[in-house]
């Protein structure tokens, strides 16, 4: 049952900003918000609908790739420039949830949605992320939980498919505050539980995510994206990877960025592996070596050790794909 709220329909972001008061929430597509409201996880006195603000709904490819936070996931999937310059992003978008949800859900909502952990989403569990004392997942049913960043009282996985890809693309976020438009690197946007336990990201109350920018030099590089789901129709991933990178004229890896989704409470960068790959000859043998030595720092829970094996496969396949090699795994 949803608690009653007032509803505002501003036409401009500045109006929205002013309308925000103590117990308000912004709503874009509203998929995540309605879910939380229906489960009585949250309640608000007023909800400010951002979906009537035209200035949030654009895809601009003039210089860099700039996507308004209000753009629907389906529009990202269908955008031809994105398909061309950033196939991982359109692929990821096209595999999110269901067509129905993609039509409504927005980029901003996808990036900022609350955890999908089943303990968090159920009123029956007063979990640490909701301000309770324990994380039920760590000693509970944790098959779908994190293998990294899970030692600080919360084990959810970042649910944003867009974030996995955009983190690999080193995207920047433009955020409207009462004072300014600030820019945050997506790689710095999310909090690990160790940093903040009940808040997932740096978009403060009342601030509005305006847009996401991917710089030109990060487009047109080689893309690999793969999402593994138990069920192919509408399911959350059990593992997700995005690799953006290149092979230089010597046949060596160059500037590779690797991000795992469904692995940690934040899009999980494989910085060590990125470094190992820099300048490494792109052969299956060397790729195999990198993959073999990876994930030693993972901390799988009782029921999710399989994710390590799964991610190894994805990493291997992804690097082979970037290198133009046939994967043997």
């Amino acid at each position: 049952m949803i608690k009653d709220f007032e509803y505002y329909l501003p036409k401009a972001t500045e109006q929205a900003l002013t309308l925000f008061s103590k117990n308000s929430a912004y709503k874009a597509g509203g998929i995540d918000l309605l879910d939380l409201l229906k489960e009585n996880i949250v309640s608000y006195d007023s909800i400010i609908n951002l979906s009537g603000i035209d200035s949030l709904d654009f895809i601009d490819t003039e210089i860099d790739l700039k996507i308004g936070a209000g753009v629907s996931i389906q529009k990202i999937a269908d955008s031809q420039p994105i398909q061309k310059y950033c196939p991982a992003l359109s692929e990821s978008a096209s595999e999110i949830a269901t067509p129905h949800i993609r039509n409504i859900a927005t980029l901003g909502g996808n990036l900022c949605q609350k955890p999908r952990c089943w303990y968090f989403r159920s009123k029956d569990f007063d979990c640490s992320r909701k301000g309770g004392k324990v994380c039920f997942a760590i000693d509970g049913e944790n098959k779908y939980h994190s293998i990294y960043g899970n030692q600080d009282g919360c084990a959810f996985v970042n649910p944003s498919g867009m974030a996995t890809v955009l983190t690999a693309l080193n995207a920047r976020l433009q955020i409207l505050t009462k004072k300014e438009i600030k820019t945050i690197n997506l790689r710095d946007f999310y909090y690990l539980p160790a940093e903040k336990l009940t808040c997932e990201h740096k978009l403060n109350d009342g601030e509005i995510l305006l847009s996401v920018t991917v710089e030109k030099e990060n487009l047109l590089r080689k893309n690999y994206y793969c999402k593994i789901k138990e069920k192919q129709s509408s399911d959350w991933p059990i593992a997700e990877i995005c690799i953006i990178g290149g092979i230089n004229s010597l046949g060596n890896f160059e500037n590779v960025s690797i991000v795992l989704g469904s692995a940690a409470p934040i899009p999980w960068r494989m910085i060590k592996e990125e470094k190992k790959l820099e300048g490494l000859q792109a052969t299956t043998k060397y790729i195999g070596n990198v993959v073999e030595s990876s994930f030693s720092d993972a901390n799988p829970l009782r029921d999710n050790a399989y994710k390590v094996k799964l991610f190894r496969t994805l990493l291997y396949r992804g690097l082979c794909s970037i290198a133009g090699l046939e994967s043997e795994r």
């Binding site: 509803y7 979906s51 129905h100």
Partner: peptide
């Protein structure tokens, strides 16, 4: 399901399918 998972509530809004259970009527 009341949560946008089953699609039984699908309607078209300007020709796009949406879950009407996850869509505010005012919108």
């Amino acid at each position: 399901c009341e949560r946008g998972s089953c699609g039984a509530c699908t309607v078209l809004i300007d020709d796009n399918p949406v879950n009407s259970c996850m869509f505010l009527a005012v919108d």
